[in-house]
Amino acid sequence: MEILQFALRKIIGGIPLILGVTFISFLLMVYYGPDKTYELLGKNPTAEQIESVRAELGYDQPFLQRYVTYLREIVTLDFGNSFSSGERVNSILKRTMPISLAVITPGFILGNLLGLVLALVAAYHRSGWIDKAIMGFSVVGMSISFLIVVIAFQLIFCSSYGLNWFPSRGWDVYSLSDYLRFVTVPTMATIFVALGYNTRFYRAVIVEEMGRDHVRTARAFGTPPAQLLYRSVLKNSLIPIITRIMFSIPLVVISGSLIIETYFGIPGVGKVTYDAITQGDQPILKAVVGLTAVLFVLTLLITDILYRVVDPRVSLK
């Protein structure tokens, strides 16, 4: 019951955020965005034809009314039809979202897990050569652009100039082995790019926790290293770790898959969004922005509940 009340309060508290996000993006993308009227018309349109298309696109209505329509679309989760393909936005999303999740999830999980493990190793050997080597690699990783990594990995693993082990583009997945064939290189690229940042962040969190009094107490009572890292360090660093992971979810799902999917020709939400950006397909962009904002509020809520689960000092008030 307490959780439900809390959830309700949080969701209501998230409304200003959703309003802000949708308003700013609506203003920029839809109101100031490109006029699609003439693209949808044949040559030499008549005045009536122009009128009817403008009415269909909603251009004839006043600004506020169009924004309210957008809000209604978010609440009802119905964003109309894509300008370019005419397909319902909902069915596009329903088709592409599972693909995006399948592409991004392994890399996201492994990138965070590996980062955490490397960070623990580095922090445990703090200032030693192992620490310096790991931190050196992570700075190198942070200094290479995502695009460079993607191009290089595709060259190395998917082209006749390199190993040519994996398909370079596309997504023909009907079995687990297909899945592994198509997902491996994108996953490696995602891990490579995220690892440097993750390792650094987690190491800083862990080193800070290691300096705390209660860790010294645990050591003074003979706690062995593995237990020390788990019980005293990791358990107590969960709040920043959870924060980082949770808050990267909404952005990674959109921005991360955007580049991967475009470059590897994978028909996920990222690719759809990219096409929508380049073609000014507003219904899709409106849906993506609106859903991301909703996802953010839900993330905030779940994060807060998780805080309560991992730290007895946090209350849901």
């Binding site: 009094d213 209660h214 107490t217 050591r219 003074a220 009572f221 062995p224 107590n236 730290d311």
Partner: peptide
Amino acid sequence: RNIRGRDISMIFQEPMTALNPV
């Protein structure tokens, strides 16, 4: 590690932060 806490123990200055909060 076997000695710490069994043969010799230590109490610290800051009781507020010396125990594991979770």
